[in-house]
Design a protein around this nucleic acid. Structure first.
Lengths: 334, 334
DNA sequence: CTGAAAGCGCTTACAG
DNA sequence: CTGAAAGCGCTTACAG
């Protein structure tokens, strides 16, 4: 069965296609009776406007592009959840772009631009400053709005929604120190994610202020790899606290140290980031810094709709850099 | 800066736009020198064809729609991972549609059809048979190819990629029984997911064949809810084995029972499904049935590309229902 | 309030 | 091998 087009409904309702288009887009501009007649035909025929044709004619696709690196990270799913819910509310469609493994970033971002999205939520936090600059240039050249969701950048050159990871790490490290902890490790990943940069920075600052030596241990996020790695490195080593960039790394570390005879939290405090299910399923339960990742997604999408709305073009600069609150969820590992 | 169009490159390369279009789509049909000249201009101008215009003109968008219910489920991320990787390989774009909370399924599927996707990967496993029938009808009417990824349907009326969950559950339950277990529970969710239907069926069959009473306990996937729920129900109750529809539920149950004084695996065997990180991070490590969810995504996408390819339209019926192998990963909980 | 017409940026027979 | 022209299904000034 051929798809029903705007011509079909125009013909059947005995109006021009311009009128059909109007009842779809500016219903108040058309006479009530005509409108109802057209609406009836639309329903009868099960007409749904072809989004592609509409996009071409109006130069607006009501589609946003989501750029990510790795879908399987716990934070990615949460971010997507927030984005999807809000996009749905505002009737935006979502196109997914993965930059995983891409070497030519310029080409990658050009590809997403070629898809004619109205806006972009950028949540790939694996690019360096130079690559981010290229992305920014191409996007601005194409006059597409973009917001960074959970991506850390040194300067505020792009609208963004974030958590103050540096402050969170700084504060929790200070607290650890105030409890008398001295051998405090930062457990990070070998792979560079920009969201982890401020976590490490905050930790380092607190350590240095207290005259303690910052010790960053980098490993894999893969449990099968980090387990032996932890065991080998921390075997017999002095360590009385650890802050991990992710819950799952914290739990893995805690398990290994427990196997090695350490008592958590008496001998050793362990803290994670995000507050995922891992924290709840570990024994003892993991104390962690809750970061509202779902909300980062939702707020990013809301910010983006505002930026894309020509009416509210004067969005003040200050509201383009949103910092969401975090909190410490105190459980049993500290 | 205005976007560069096919006219710009045609003008600069001193050819017609038809020729430019050809070097893009059928490069071998154009003279080598002309082609190289055009290609040079394309590069110089940084031209990328407008995907929307192309979609309208060719009636092919090289876009697939992914229909899901809940992004935050562990399986969803894995499925998406597989889909994304293969889609990228075949140069397909991805549009994401969430049916979470939708009441009018017909309207929902019509919306995805209106977006002019060339094919659909359907991974929403929360619909009932009647709703699935509606989806099937609308999609076929629009002549769009669709494959079910990790969605269970009684009949083979739609191409699908699955794991034989019934067989897996049946076999592991038989094994439990052969080890002398009698009070074997199936831990399922209150919410109905079609992938869980065969798991429960396989479990029941094994129990009944052995003359044992099948006992299905339904709870929430939320740890904060299922923890007290497990505690209350299983307190003092006889149970020597449990099979859970998800790893995280298995781990939560194992934790509660351990707190209640049970020894795993001596007093109690616990088994999960999927083999997520939860299984590796639990103590004792969880024995589970590994289901290749990433592969289901990847294979679904590959199947879909075949179905969408008009050249290989004669895909035999048999190859449209793919069952991927599972395996039992034996760790410490059984 | 409504219609005729141009145009969005491409692809694709059809000629040559 | 290449070009002129029609057409994809809409939106949007412009008239009336």
């Amino acid at each position: 069965m051929a798809r029903v087009t705007i011509y079909d409904v125009a013909g059947k309702a005995k109006v021009s296609l311009a009128t059909v288009s109007r009842v779809l887009n500016n219903p108040n501009k058309v006479n009530k009776e005509t409108r109802q007649r057209v609406e009836a035909v639309i329903k009868e025929l099960g007409y749904h406007p072809n989004a592609i044709a509409r996009g071409l004619a109006s130069k607006k696709t009501t589609t946003v592009g989501i750029v990510l690196s790795d879908v399987t990270r716990a934070a990615t799913a949460q971010l997507l959840g927030g984005i999807i819910d809000i996009a749905k509310k505002y009737n935006y469609s979502i196109k997914l772009f993965s930059m995983a493994g891409d070497t030519d970033i310029e080409e990658s971002i050009r590809n997403v631009i070629a898809e004619q999205v109205d806006g972009i939520i950028f949540m790939n936090d694996e690019l360096d400053d130079n690559e981010m600059r290229i992305v920014k240039e191409r996007v601005e050249e194409a006059e597409i709005k973009m917001v960074l969701a959970n991506v850390y950048l040194d300067s505020d050159i792009l609208p963004s929604v974030m958590v103050d990871y540096a402050k969170a790490a700084y504060e929790i490290t200070k607290e650890l120190i105030s409890k008398g902890k001295k051998d405090i490790y930062m457990l990070a990943t070998v792979r560079k994610y920009s969201v982890n940069t401020p976590k490490i920075a905050g930790y380092k600052q607190a350590m240095e202020e207290a005259g303690l030596e910052p010790k960053v241990f980098r490993t894999s996020g893969d449990v099968n790899i980090n387990t032996p790695h932890f065991r080998e490195f921390f075997q017999g080593k002095g360590v009385d606290a650890a802050l991990a960039v992710r819950d799952s790394i914290a739990v893995s570390f805690m398990n290994v140290m427990t196997d090695l005879g350490k008592k958590v939290p008496d001998d050793l405090s362990v803290i994670g980031f995000q507050n995922t299910k891992y924290a709840l399923l570990s024994r003892p339960n993991l104390t962690c810094i809750y970061t509202p990742v779902y909300d980062i997604g939702a707020v990013s999408m809301r910010l983006l709709t505002k930026l894309m709305d020509p009416a509210s073009d004067e969005t003040e600069e200050s509201s383009k850099h949103i910092l969401l609150p975090y909190s410490v969820i105190r459980r049993q590992s500290m």
